[in-house]
């Protein structure tokens, strides 16, 4: 089963290697990982998407918690949360397909962020499923390059992570 986990870590030297090394060393699966500092620059937040049964996930959370630099681990499974991913897509846009590409982008409320006579570069945000859906539609036009950020998540409701 897929789990999305937020890990709040001290923004120390080598902390990303500790977390990724933990996953590879213990044979845990990592589907995506994104990381950036929080409002407090001494703390970084990682969002990790991983897969495994309950026993594996229990180990993943415990092992993450055991790292000295880890301040908090939140497994969002079973909680209400907002999930968003950013994708940048460079897609073929020659005469006959230019209009079609724009129509698709419009439907998905994406944005064209770079234009050439032969291509559009599109910015799209949303839940990973939405990103997948637009990619499926753009595929026939010819996708030249794709960058996905991996999802980031935040819990719904008034409380921040410190009180959750």
């Amino acid at each position: 089963m897929k789990h999305t986990i937020s890990v709040l870590v001290e923004n120390e030297f080598g902390v990303l290697a500790r977390v990724s090394g933990l996953f590879s060393g213990r044979g845990f699966n990592i589907e995506s990982l994104s990381v950036a500092p929080t409002l407090d620059p001494s703390i970084s937040r990682m969002t990790i998407v991983t897969r495994g049964d309950d026993q594996v996930l229990e180990q993943v959370t415990k092992q993450l918690n055991k790292l000295i630099d880890t301040i908090k681990v939140i497994d969002f499974t079973g909680y209400d949360f907002v999930e968003r991913e950013l994708a940048l897509v460079k897609v073929n846009a020659e005469d006959e397909t230019r209009a079609e590409v724009l129509r698709i982008v419009d439907i998905f409320r994406g944005k064209v962020v770079d234009v050439t006579p032969k291509s559009y570069t599109i910015e799209i945000t949303g839940a990973p499923a939405k990103v997948n859906a637009i990619l499926d539609l753009l595929q026939p036009m010819g996708i030249k390059e794709l960058v996905r950020s991996g999802p980031v998540v935040i819990g719904r409701g008034p409380k921040g992570w410190k009180s959750s």
């Binding site: 030297f13 080598g14 290697a17 090394g21 000295i68």
Partner: peptide, 16 residues
């Protein structure tokens, strides 16, 4: 040594 010892120490430090 930080890389090498990471999985075989409880924690490690590079003092810069």
């Amino acid at each position: 040594m930080i890389g090498i010892s990471r999985p075989i120490t409880k924690h490690n430090y590079l003092v810069r």
